[in-house]
Nucleic acid binder design. Sequence first.
DNA 1: AGAATAAGCTCAAACGATTGCGCAATATGT
DNA 2: ACATATTGCGCAATCGTTTGAGCTTATTCT
Lengths: 340, 340
Amino acid sequence: MKYEAVTIKDIAKVLNLSTSTVSRALRDSYEISAETKKLVIEYAEKINYRPNPIALSLKERRTRSLGIIVCEIANSFFSQVIDGIESVAYSRGYNVTFLQSHESFDKEKLSLEYLASRSVDGLLISVSTETQDFSHLTQLSNRGFPIVFFDRIVDEIDTHKVIVNNFKGVYTATTHLTEKGYKRIAYIANSEFLTLTKDRLNGYKKALGEADIEIDESLIKYCNHGGMINDEVEKVLDEIFASKKKPDAIFASSDKLTTGCLHYFKKHNIKVPKNVALVGFSNNENSDLFNPSLTVIKQPAMEMGEIATNYLLELIESKRPIKDFETRILDTEFIVREST
Amino acid sequence: MKYEAVTIKDIAKVLNLSTSTVSRALRDSYEISAETKKLVIEYAEKINYRPNPIALSLKERRTRSLGIIVCEIANSFFSQVIDGIESVAYSRGYNVTFLQSHESFDKEKLSLEYLASRSVDGLLISVSTETQDFSHLTQLSNRGFPIVFFDRIVDEIDTHKVIVNNFKGVYTATTHLTEKGYKRIAYIANSEFLTLTKDRLNGYKKALGEADIEIDESLIKYCNHGGMINDEVEKVLDEIFASKKKPDAIFASSDKLTTGCLHYFKKHNIKVPKNVALVGFSNNENSDLFNPSLTVIKQPAMEMGEIATNYLLELIESKRPIKDFETRILDTEFIVREST
DNA sequence: AGAATAAGCTCAAACGATTGCGCAATATGT
DNA sequence: ACATATTGCGCAATCGTTTGAGCTTATTCT
């Protein structure tokens, strides 16, 4: 079934006017008499006329919509970021199209192609854990397509970026663990391809160094699919707990990895914090309800989305090319609870 | 800065051909010689030509995109539904635009206007808790705009709908409570304007009736903003726990209400299930990690999204008006854990 | 009164792509 | 050799809207 919406032509035909007159009347042009304006506006109101945004987009060569690519929206951190993005975007007259990469490089590339082929005016992206090759992004960026990175950024591409102070966040959390007397602290990292993974690892190493704890590489494990692949977390935890010298604490580098650890502990009847302490990145709004309640590093997700969107709109709406790019670094929040 | 994408005209100019020839060459028309085709296709490839979807939308009078309106995506149930919607939509060549009503009727109405003004070919909606007036939806639906309801449906409008068996789900859960010996079971309901609230209430009443428990209206409390407004849950729980005859069990009618109860109990040091049992609707993937782990009614959210999207695409792509509408009722899953 | 100005409207092109139709040039048939 | 068929391409309209330019009238000025 075809849904036929009313157009300016329909109005013109009924009122015996040209489409130009109708258009000008609706836009309150000085060239149109008050009488005609009233006629047109009232009739348009009556039949509930709405201009076709597609036609406008074609004419104005802009869509007034933004593209967002994240790994998945069923994730407390990203859905909070999206809340922030949406609120700014809508208040500035833009709408928003989301795509999920599900941590797949191929899906990310396809989504990007689609969005950049003129269905959005700009892009907000947090790259997938698989992404090592940035050429798809570099090309677009070089041709002047507005892109802003948040959370999982790409160092090689020069544009606005919004991240948290990953180094400091992890340094604080790890120091908290060493001060509590934990000695064998495992690090369950996200994909090794993400820049934030390196930053976080550095924070971890610095804290251990200051506590005179030697770094044991066997306690550092990467989850290159961010915990999206079956048993990814289980596998690395199996390895860690199979060793003779078991860890006494675990640091988990993302929401998904943190809850992944908890599920593993529950399954294997490992008590937290009695057998092992746990601290991780998490924006889960219910992490205080967990058993035990979680000590977490929390990111200002909503704010991140807002700032990133403002950056993007600046790029889009600027009359001249912007060459001075900023990287905004937000502070994390460290919340101590029962798990440590 | 303006990002200038390459068009069919650019190709035509460079190759000294007409735009029609280029277009036909790219679509592999029999009217074009193999030689010209090769020329065009290779050049298009080289400069990375992508057809402008906006222009296509205008021409074909369809956008190949679907609109989704839910209260919020930072909600495990809805984000799972969206996962389902997205997977079907993309596999059928549609993309997806989300809007959040944040449980506000006005925002829902605005979003709807925007989407229906031709930026999407059809709509999937779960109405806001505030929505009592359906005229905005009725009008669109009557004019042939494809709409499919899921979860929070509107009885008055005749179209495809996807829901769960709310009556049965709650009946099962309440019976579970009565069989465990609970006598004073409170019902923390969602907005009284939602049809699912009535269905669920009926399940609750039936179960109590069968257990010869008299219905105490003071134990039935509505949260007309679905728990989105500050302290909404706290207020009703205060009322319930202020009475002399305190409840020994609580049924919570949504994800947000369920975690709302848990937060309240934690704050007021009410032990679950020792002081009071708790069972609720929840699709939270971590509800087994809570303290205590939650007994829940879980909805097949992903499946719901998939089915609803298939229905919508059927409406959109059908050649003739569809008059036979279906309401698909899915079964819930009841998972017993420590909280009861 | 005749010329200049202003008011109020219409024409047509444009945005990017598709497509029915027409028109040359060549190939084929008799 | 001439009529017809085929091949390969371009013209122009179309989708819905905006907008510069032009065209009638009516009004004002000298």
